[in-house]
């Protein structure tokens, strides 16, 4: 898994060219049909959880969070996003970062998806293979909203298909967040602790908004 991520980092951004040398890249291909059926199943689960009748907002959100925790390669995505700063962090910081990242990611995503009442989704036109992952295109429809394209990047992680990126209308969550986090660290003199502090604060605010 680590090697796979290292490899993708290298391909995705020249920024980590140096890091890629650390580990030999042996990409493990993901079967496109397997990736597609994985996204179809996960998508149906999510839609069912979001549209569940009789469930409170908090219940729906919790159900969505459960599905996401299972389907998303949270640690891999977290490491990708921290990018070049991962090696600057102490092991303790790395560990705390991954814990904070999981909370931020799951809370933000489930709050976002939780608003999608009445959502429907269908597999889109293109299911593409890249060198070491698959891009599964879906079209999301909500009442009174034009349909929009949502791409899921799926990779094989420890023998299981996992979501490693979500791309809404061409905007990758992974790349956008990497830019965000790197900017926070750079503007604080390359100090990873400043990012952790900001994330802790953010989680407090998110928790307060969710009502605990």
């Amino acid at each position: 898994m680590t090697a796979l991520l290292r490899r993708r980092q290298m391909l995705a951004a020249a920024a980590v060219a140096a890091a890629a040398k650390v580990l030999p890249a042996h990409a493990q291909g993901v079967d496109i049909a397997r990736a597609t059926s994985f996204i179809q199943a996960t998508g149906q689960e999510l839609v069912a959880a979001i549209n569940a009748n009789g469930a409170s907002v908090a219940q729906r959100r919790e159900r969505v969070a459960q599905i996401l925790r299972r389907a998303v390669d949270v640690d891999g995505v977290g490491r990708f996003i921290l990018g070049r700063w991962w090696r600057n962090a102490t092991p303790e910081q790395q560990q705390e970062y991954l814990q904070l990242f999981e909370q931020v990611l799951i809370r933000n995503l489930s709050a976002r998806f939780g608003e999608y009442q009445g959502v429907r989704f269908a597999l889109g036109r293109t299911q593409a293979r890249t060198e070491d992952d698959a891009l599964v295109n879906t079209v999301v429809e909500r009442p009174n909203t034009p349909p929009f394209g949502l791409d899921w990047r799926v990779a094989e992680v420890n023998g299981q298909p996992k979501v490693v990126d979500v791309i809404a209308e061409g905007t990758s969550l992974r790349l956008t967040t990497r830019s965000e986090y790197s900017s926070v660290i750079s503007r604080n003199g390359g100090n990873v602790a400043s990012l952790l502090q900001a994330m802790r604060q953010q989680i407090q605010q998110l928790a307060a908004r969710e009502g605990g």
């Binding site: 933000n108 889109g124 036109r125 079209v139 034009p146 349909p147 929009f148 394209g149 209308e169 061409g170 905007t171 990758s172 790349l175 956008t176 967040t177 990497r178 830019s179 965000e180 986090y181 790197s182 900017s183 926070v184 503007r187 990012l195 900001a198 994330m199 953010q202």
Partner: peptide, 27 residues
Amino acid sequence: ESLDPYATLRSAYRQRRAAEIRNSAPE
């Protein structure tokens, strides 16, 4: 949600423009 909205928008704008230029969005 963003710890640095300026950086988030910068990245999102670039990616979005690239997708528009490729004409990749269905609509």
